[in-house]
Amino acid sequence: MDRREFLKRAAGAGLAIAGSALGAAWLYDPRGGAEYFRSEENKKTASLKSYRVDRGKGAVEMTVVRGKDPEKMMRAGIQAMGGIGSFVQKGDVVLIKPNVAFDRAPALGATTSPDVLKAVALLCKKAGARKIIVADNPINQPEGCFFKSGIQQAAADVGAEVMLPKPGAFSLVKIGGEILKTWSMFHRPLEHATKVIGVAPCKDHNLCSASMTMKNWYGLLGGRRNQFHQQIHTVIADFAQMIRPTLVVLDATRVLMQNGPTGGRLSDVQEADTLVIGTDMVAVDAFGYTLLGRDPEKLEYIHKAEARGLGSTKWKEQNWREVLAG
């Protein structure tokens, strides 16, 4: 090798080393592993928008509908609140959140009735919704829960899309509650939705006495959510802070009177033939608790939510209607 050749090769090698060093310097992150991932998580923390609609002063806030046919009941109840057009407009993407927490048959009252879900979805379709998403996060075997509860079939019957809780569908969400500050949530359906309707069964609950429309949002939490059971009333009140749905529907066509939330005995289920539709979850749950034959004064979480200004337990003082439907 002559001198010229040596210098050429040395320069090439030097350039390669310098390039690698510059590249490494560009990629180097001085924060370290844990801090890096924490800041990445923070970057990806989502916030939930309000899905409420402004219907002006004097609008009916709650209807209690009695009847046997969920479709007629939903129609009559919503009509009394100004019609579905007051809540869902043409082109909306509507998320319907039923309670599909367990792989139980609909008759056992542990999950939302498929007929009620269908009735809600049909109304949204009628209003011109572009898409209807049905989503919940049963921790164990979501496919089995959607199948056995009849919700999968009901969604298919009305052309709604069932969104299952796949791993990539979860995001950290800023909740800002007393206990729930930031938590992993089944967020994808909420990202897509322009309107959100919660459709919850009315049932006894071993830990919080009753599972109704506020508790229903627990089903969107990811992670190891059973750790909240110790302070369940505060956490349920946090849900009223977390989400402002367009509408909630308390499905009390069947009421699971005891051995909730799982049930398992038809003898524990009472036909109550009632739907409670409202915009104030606290008021709807306060009324719903009476359907379980219990005193709303004793239901801790609704009072916690009321104290935070998230709704009112005094449903009688609100603008409400009682409707009889076929």
Binding site: E41, N140, S171, K181, W183, S184, G222, G223
Partner: peptide, 15 residues
């Protein structure tokens, strides 16, 4: 053993 661990747990989640 049926134990779903595929849901992202938050920083506060206990294992």
């Amino acid at each position: 053993v049926e134990s779903r661990t595929d849901q992202p747990a938050s920083a506060g989640a206990q294992m």
